[in-house]
Simulated assay, not measured.
Amino acid sequence: MSKYLLNKFLYTVDRDPELVERYREDPRGTVAWWEAERANQLLNCHTGEASTWLAFDDPEREALVAHDYVKLFELGAHPFLTLTLFIAAFERDHAEPLGFQKEYALRLQHFSLPYPDIAT
């Protein structure tokens, strides 16, 4: 498992409105494309340098595909990165203000300290 790669996905997709929409509408295709095309690019590096070994494991991939932010939290994804991406993707589906944030808190309320380790 690579918490780094998981957080990198959340970070990079959240910063591109087109990728947010693509992830919302076609999560399996977006995750597969991102893993093949972007996972091994170095962050903030535009010189063509890349690594060759990073890949999601099955639980990470399936949690991303299912938009399962509870599982992502359990796997150690950073909660701020998860929350911001899922707000961008799903806040519009809630009628009340802060509707998604309230749902997020409700679905994660069973966690108690210490939270899963988010160190990468």
Rank of each mutant, 00 (worst) to 15 (best):
E35C: 03
D26T: 12
L54K: 09
Q41W: 10
W33H: 13
K3Y: 07
L43Q: 05
D117N: 12
V70A: 14
F56K: 02
Y4T: 05
D26H: 14
H78L: 08
R22T: 06
A66H: 13
S51A: 13
L10A: 05
H94M: 01
P79W: 07
N7V: 11
R92W: 03
P79D: 06
T47E: 12
Q101Y: 00
P97D: 07
H110T: 11
D16E: 04
Y11T: 06
K8R: 15
L83W: 00
H94W: 14
Y11P: 00
L6G: 02
A105I: 13
D16V: 06
E25K: 14
Y104D: 05
A36S: 12
P17K: 14
E25P: 00
F9N: 06
R24P: 02
H78Y: 14
D117G: 02
Y115D: 05
P116Y: 11
Y104S: 10
A55W: 07
Q41L: 15
S112N: 04
V31C: 02
P17H: 13
L10G: 07
E96M: 06
Y69W: 15
P79G: 10
A95K: 12
L106P: 00
N40L: 05
A55P: 00
A50T: 01
S2L: 07
Y104M: 11
N44W: 03
L54F: 01
D57L: 07
P79Q: 06
R107K: 15
Y69F: 10
Y4V: 10
A39M: 03
P116G: 02
P59D: 08
W34V: 03
E18V: 08
D26W: 10
D117W: 05
F100M: 01
S51L: 13
T30C: 05
R15C: 08
L85K: 09
P17I: 13
L108C: 06
I118K: 05
R15I: 02
A88F: 09
T82H: 12
D58Y: 01
